[in-house]
Amino acid sequence: MSNAHGAVELEVDQITHETSDAISLSFVVPEHRTAQFAYRPGQFLTLEIPCTDGGSVARCYSFSSSPVRDPRPTVTVKRIEDGLASHWLHDNVVRGMRLNALPPSGMFGPENWDSDFVLMAAGSGITPMLSIIKTALFRHDNRMTLVYANQNRESVIFAEQLSELQARFPDRLDVHHWFASDSGLPTAAGLATMDVMVPVDYEAFLCGPTQYMNVAEEWLALTGTTARRTHREVFSSFDSNPFRIDDAALPHESDGKSVTAQVEIDGIETEFAWNADTKLLDRLLELGLDAPYVCREGTCGGCAYTLTEGTVTMLANETLDQHEMAHGVRLACQSVPVSATIRAVFDR
């Protein structure tokens, strides 16, 4: 058993109580790791939480900070019922504590900023939205419409920040709240009764429970508009711990058919034989190559790469959308080769 590639100890610099069950944690990144921990709006940080006797669990938390606005990278953690990691953090984290973290990952944020955004969040799904909103307002020119669903007014995370941003940028940020205590759970028909203007040309960003994201898409379709692209953020608990690599589980010599692979990581290209019964990420780790990854389960997008030549089959995919697939994006942890030659580029 060995430690994960790229794991770094981050020091907790500040703890902010956003609501009775949500805290934000700001981190000090070691100076020599600044480039490695640069992040984009919509990405997440994977933390190792030492909440079990002699062991730990890994969890992903979205950045609520903006890389162009905030001095420290910050994630926000909502206390979840029966949530082992979130309970431990709420009950134990203190300023100066150090936690292991993997470099930022995820593909939820905008690729570009040349269209308007419709942001649909529920509960802690507001976290990556705040990062996107602040970055757009302070660095770009696009307009945004946010529809944010919560149980009641007291459970609104970042209520004050959102109010201040809307007051400062009234022509560019339009915020609408839905409270289940007043109106019941959101429905497409219910959202249609709200006075929400949906722009003609926009990208949609959805984050929250699956049922809410489905309702949001249904409502957007009722508006008669078509999103340029729709992004959905889905987090799952890991079956494995990316901070602890089981070396025995990595592939070894096989008698199966092999292909020739050329893989570029951080500008360095390596050519090697790749067995047809082995996942690409497993082969890269076996070779000691520093490929990015988090969950190894096809749910987070942390090992995404661009397939520039050849064909692969993905055994599972819970994170890439049709747009990404059409542009050659694949997941290394789920890719097995089909064609005789493969070329892949990790351009994190």
Rank of each mutant, 00 (worst) to 15 (best):
K257Y: 11
A304G: 11
L130G: 02
L320G: 01
A58D: 02
F346Q: 11
Y305V: 13
V259I: 11
A276Y: 02
I15S: 10
P209A: 13
V196G: 10
S115L: 15
S24A: 13
V196H: 06
R69F: 12
P30A: 06
Y61A: 07
G298Y: 04
R228P: 00
L307Q: 11
W88I: 07
Q43G: 08
L10P: 02
L220R: 11
S183N: 14
D116I: 03
E48F: 00
E233V: 11
E18M: 05
N241S: 07
Y293S: 02
L331P: 11
G54E: 00
N214H: 03
G328C: 09
K78L: 08
G184R: 08
L119I: 15
L130N: 02
A192S: 15
E269R: 15
T299Y: 04
Q14L: 04
D21R: 14
D290I: 07
G301E: 03
P110R: 10
F235K: 11
L280N: 10
E324L: 04
A221I: 08
P251V: 10
D247L: 13
Q151S: 08
S20Y: 01
E11C: 10
A249L: 04
D239C: 02
M1H: 09
D13M: 07
P292F: 01
G6K: 10
D347R: 09
T46L: 03
L185K: 12
A332C: 14
M129D: 03
S105F: 01
E286V: 00
A227M: 05
A192Q: 14
A7Y: 06
A58K: 09
Q262E: 14
N150I: 08
T308H: 01
D246L: 09
K279L: 15
R139Q: 15
V336D: 04
D321M: 05
V77T: 12
R139K: 14
Q43H: 07
V200I: 13
S236N: 12
L47P: 00
G302Y: 05
E48T: 01
H327Q: 11
Y305M: 15
E164D: 10
G208Y: 02
A149N: 02
A249I: 00
R79I: 07
E164F: 00
L47Q: 01
F158K: 12
T341Q: 13
I157C: 14
